[in-house]
Design a protein around this nucleic acid. Structure first.
Lengths: 113, 113
DNA sequence: TTGCCATACCTTGCAGCGCGAGGCAATATG
DNA sequence: CATATTGCCTCGCGCTGCAAGGTATGGCAA
């Protein structure tokens, strides 16, 4: 059963990571802060969220990793692959459809057919 | 420990239900269909999602229920209470802040401070 | 009558995700 | 020398969404 379950609201951390890494390759610790800062503290995903997602994405071939040492610090940088780019498009599309649908319910006044 | 945990993306079914019930009182089965239709099939929450949420909301005083019989059919109608209206505002606010934050990450090109 | 579908309610059990909490190691700071 | 920061990682749990199943009534067609 290689079916993809998961509930309708999940996968946002994955989406954010893929999107950020598309700009430039980043490492885990950096992503944790980037998400917090770029979301204006509205979203604060800890390392316990980020790292497992990173590993899963690499395992699925959506990200490629390379260990680099920058001023004495060893970091694992992740870059978007072609597979990852496709996956990003899918997730972004789903997200947009989903929020659109929710918005249309939230916004509408009473309407009759 | 009566602390409210739950993850950052949850509570959408609750939000949708509260919003729909604000217009007019509705019953469970009706909500299931309303959400599917008004979201253009983008969201399809089953009864296994709706009923438990309904019960929880009533337990918390956000909804009040009244059993009514309409052309031979017995239904449990739910109406929004004052508490529920407040809760709806909170959830809607959170949702809006959250999607705004996500959007700002999804949309932005690279930018530095 | 006997089916069968739609309406209408409900609960149980599980998978999966998010996440806190913790642990390790190296560099920097006071 | 102690403490904070950077940077990586994993375990275990809570909670949520959800499929699956169960009950009951009404309408309709064969």
């Amino acid at each position: 059963m290689a079916e993809n379950n998961s509930n309708f609201m999940s996968g946002v951390p994955e989406l954010l990571i893929l999107r950020l890494v598309r700009e430039k390759e980043m490492y885990g610790y950096e992503l944790v802060q980037a998400i917090r800062e770029r979301s204006n503290e509205a979203i604060a995903l800890g390392e316990g969220v980020i790292y497992p997602v990173l590993h899963a994405l690499e395992r699925d071939g959506a990200l490629s990793s390379s260990r680099k040492t920058v001023n004495g610090r060893s970091r694992v940088y992740y870059a978007l692959t072609a597979t990852g780019a496709k996956r990003l498009d899918d997730l972004a599309g789903n997200w947009s459809r989903l929020t659109g649908a929710i918005q249309s319910i939230l916004v509408s006044g009473v309407q009759h057919a």
